[in-house]
């Protein structure tokens, strides 16, 4: 049945009725192949099913302390997107991004949008609009506060727009439930950044490999 479906030109109604028959699949029902946006960090990519940051999903970054190279972790992916002409955004970053450092990391600044917004609700609103638009490849948001419901909205928006969403939260949020596809804790050990995969949707975590030092690639 599936063999010759593709050769026929059918009306939409016919296709609908065909879809009722067991064993007939439409291409849109097929699961998409897992794909990832390479993070530029080999150890991390090896941990992630698509070989990179999950596309069409939300990644939570749980930060213990600032200034440990946490944004550096995202920049190879942002650099790759912007150089390929895709748009990226920072929503409500805690400080002003410093252009020379971004450019040194390879980011094409003409495709990085900064949304400077104070209000907690507006931050989430802006991130949701960007994620769901389908024209932003990667969006990082620093929410003032965010609950599970808001995270779910962002997750759905990222799915719809096939975008990579990154949400920065304090490490203390690790205890609360989250619908994000990937949760990563960023900490330091003897002055070096350590990453811990707390949750990875659709994968069984190898506990021993889930904790690793990422500093080599940074």
């Amino acid at each position: 049945m599936r063999g010759y479906c593709g050769c026929l030109i059918m009306q939409a109604e016919q296709i609908e009725s065909l879809a009722q028959i067991a064993g007939v699949w439409r291409s849109r029902d097929l699961p998409l192949p897992e794909q990832g946006l390479p993070s530029g960090n080999e150890k991390l990519d090896a941990q992630l099913p698509g070989g990179g940051w999950p596309i069409g999903a939300l990644t939570e970054l749980l930060l213990e302390t600032e200034g440990v190279g946490e944004l550096d972790l995202l920049l190879p992916a942002f650099a790759r997107c912007t150089r390929e002409g895709a748009w990226t955004a920072f929503v409500a970053p805690p400080y002003q991004p410093f252009a020379p450092a971004l450019q040194r990391a390879g980011v094409n600044l003409s495709h990085l949008l900064l949304v400077n917004v104070q209000d907690a609700k507006d931050r989430l609103w802006a991130a949701e609009q960007l994620l769901r638009s389908g024209s932003f490849a990667a969006v990082a948001v620093w929410p003032d506060q965010i609950d599970e419901r808001a995270l779910r909205r962002l997750q759905l928006a990222a799915e719809r727009g096939e975008s990579c969403g990154f949400v920065w939260r304090p490490a203390s949020a690790a205890r609360s439930a989250s619908p994000a596809a990937l949760r990563l804790r960023i900490s330091t050990e003897r002055g070096q950044m350590k990453l811990a995969v707390l949750k990875l949707r659709g994968a069984r975590l190898d506990r021993s490999a889930a904790h690793f030092s990422a500093v080599a690639a940074v």
Binding site: L113, N116, D122, Q129
Partner: peptide, 15 residues
Amino acid sequence: LRSRLGHRAVRGVQV
């Protein structure tokens, strides 16, 4: 975004 957040909220950055 501008219509809700104001004109100055939507920016880029330049060296």
